[in-house]
Design a protein around this nucleic acid. Structure first.
Lengths: 234, 234
DNA sequence: TACACATTGTAGCCGCTGCTACAGAGTGTT
DNA sequence: AACACTCTGTAGCAGCGGCTACAATGTGTA
């Protein structure tokens, strides 16, 4: 029998092979719980450009991404947009729902057509109380997110745009890239404007920095594919 | 009977009134567990300038700060130092121990004489498994840390140093400040160099920015005390 | 194919900030 | 009181990067 997700997704979304039951966070659950959870989870199909939640919305839901890609971004007081992260199938978005404050500090917008499973806060809290191991897993996930953000803070503090851009590209490659004989390949298109949002730099400066990186041999551009030759996936 | 912490601390450290038993994270524990935990916890007195752990050390311990102030900082590849956070009595440091990676991504150095209680990773994992509520509390703490880091990323992306500095000061004031009739007061001394590490800016630029903020009336300098007149503590 | 639109590339100007250097103020110690 | 040291303030120069403007190329659609 086909998974419920597959039925909803249709043909145009390439689904993550990770279904709720087999997701690492839920590994310690009983089959009965998985079934219940799987039933409760609110599946939702979203098209490119749609948002799961917006900065400032009341944060009471968390999403497991089944397929597609979602960007997390933040609009600063002065109106500039900053992209914080790109999440892919198998990742979560909306982990801020656990925080006391109760508002999403960022917006989650689909970069492609996506399928998500939503969970409410109370659902998750109950789950954690009944299955402490799930809690531990979440603690680890959050911990890793903290490390990555700490890294991010470090990146942004680096003055020079060329280095900053390269760090961002390395991170994206590690998260989303594929190993090839030439190096790590970033498969999906990132415009210079996107990279500007990711690095917090002007679009034109990105073009300049890209040129410099190309000339330094740190990146290779092959059509739409961006290759980092010196990088190895962990 | 005096608390064990007080005996160790001696007179020169102003202790947090929060002892293990009454700390919010442990509220759901039985008295017996608290006693056991309190016994196991490794108390340590450190003097100003000493470090609890250094960036790159194997991360297997987490500390509850009983008294004093600890800075978290990170040295970037190019050698510049960046201060990420200042933690005070009642806060934790070393929450990265939960992450898979197993290395502290930052250093924790005492800004004053401090007293801490250390917990090992296995101790904590067991605690979470036996007391899921503790797990939930930790999840909330981590979540908040994520929000604050997200904010931090936003701050650093702001180009202009004056705004960046003001945001940093607001954050410090919210965390460590005291409400007074004139506004929120930051009690302990922060040199321009410290602020440079916090904002990721040059020392001289901080002096410039401070001058501008003073002239704009956004901050007031009264001897060593820094006052943010327009701010209210949440 | 033709057209509209998004994306990338180039150039020039200007302001912010990093950097160095030095002077003055504040603090603590012998 | 004298000294050493840290911290703050000021000045000037140079360079990076933000900004605008425009051209060139790529991409999708009627």
């Amino acid at each position: 029998m086909a998974c419920l997700c597959e039925q909803i997704a249709g043909d145009d979304i390439e689904l993550s092979p990770i279904c709720i039951g087999s997701h690492w966070i839920f590994q310690s659950l009983d089959p009965a719980d998985i079934k219940a959870l799987s039933h409760e989870a609110l599946r939702k199909k979203s098209i490119k450009g749609e948002s799961l939640f917006l900065q400032g919305d009341s944060a009471d839901e968390m999403f497991l991404i089944k397929g597609g890609r979602i960007k997390l971004s933040k609009v600063l007081e002065d109106g500039t947009e900053l992209m914080l992260d790109i999440r892919k199938a198998g990742d979560f978005v909306g982990e801020n729902m656990f925080s006391e404050e109760g508002l999403y500090p960022v917006s989650a917008v689909c970069l492609e057509d996506t399928l998500t499973c939503g969970f409410s806060r109370s659902q998750f809290e109950e789950l954690v109380l009944q299955h402490p191991k799930v809690g531990l897993q979440i603690i680890k996930t959050l911990s890793e997110r903290i490390s990555s953000l700490t890294d991010r803070v470090g990146s942004l503090a680096v003055a020079n745009i060329e280095d900053r851009l390269y760090r961002v590209l390395k991170n994206v490659a590690k998260e989303h890239g594929a190993q090839s004989p030439q190096g790590v390949v970033i498969q999906f298109p990132l415009t210079h404007e996107d990279l500007g949002f990711l690095t917090g730099a002007h679009r034109v400066s990105i073009t300049r920095a890209m040129k410099a990186l190309k000339e330094a041999g740190k990146i290779i551009l092959e059509g739409r594919r961006l290759i980092l030759p010196t990088l190895k996936i962990a």
